[in-house]
């Protein structure tokens, strides 16, 4: 396009939803002590991931964490916790147990009722969603085992919930290892999510 066609004083387009989200969240935190703990670009990164989780993956109860819970020690970088609409991770051993229970229920005919004809022989596996830790990263970053370990040393097995949900995290007996969802964003704002476990955890049977 020829540059001469552009007006002398170009009018900036209206900020995108994401930009608005980042700006407003930054302003909201401006006077909070949290901002001081980390540079703004890390805050923006976390907000960007939060935006993606909330609007593209329908996560709820998203919270930004800047400090190790219950202390004033800052996390290596701002992290998120949230609730996925469906369970994100089922340990293979838990899966076996769930399938066994579902099979038992089906054989007993519990809750079959009105769906007797339709859902004949169908397993009804019930899994409650769980809160997950999310670690926002950029693809251009370099990480190391030390930095990953530092992140894991700062988080608990289950993220601290919102006050009214407190205590629900310890219910799942299969959740023993720390796990963090590694969110990596590229320059084109594509975000990929990987589950990182602390330690040797066998793969899922998918």
């Amino acid at each position: 396009m020829a540059t001469s066609l552009q007006p002398a004083h170009p009018v900036l387009p209206a900020p995108s939803r994401l930009t608005t989200h980042l700006l407003t969240s930054a302003n909201a935190n401006a006077n909070a002590s949290t901002v001081a703990s980390h540079p703004p670009h890390l805050h923006h990164l976390a907000r960007q991931i939060q935006h993606n989780l909330q609007h593209q993956h329908a996560w709820t109860a998203l919270r930004l964490h800047t400090h190790v819970s219950g202390t004033d020690k800052p996390l290596p970088r701002p992290m998120l916790s949230g609730l996925a609409p469906v369970r994100l991770y089922v340990h293979p051993d838990e899966q076996v147990e769930l399938l066994r229970e579902a099979g038992k229920k089906r054989d007993e005919g519990v809750g079959g009722g009105n769906e007797e004809g339709v859902g004949e022989g169908k397993l009804d596996v019930v899994v409650e969603p769980e809160r997950e830790w999310v670690l926002p990263t950029r693809l251009s970053e370099k990480w190391s085992l030390r930095r990953l370990a530092e992140v894991f040393d700062c988080v608990g097995v289950v993220p601290p919930g919102v006050e009214d949900e407190e205590g629900e995290g310890s219910q799942n007996m299969w959740r023993k290892r720390k796990r963090v969802v590694l969110a990596t964003v590229d320059g084109d704002s594509t975000v990929v999510y990987y589950i990182v476990h602390d330690g040797v955890v066998k793969p899922r049977q998918n």
Binding site: L145, Y194, V196, H197
Partner: peptide
């Protein structure tokens, strides 16, 4: 030794 297991999250 510290090790980390990584799987696709399916999102």
């Amino acid at each position: 030794v510290r090790a980390f297991s990584i799987e696709w999250a399916g999102l």
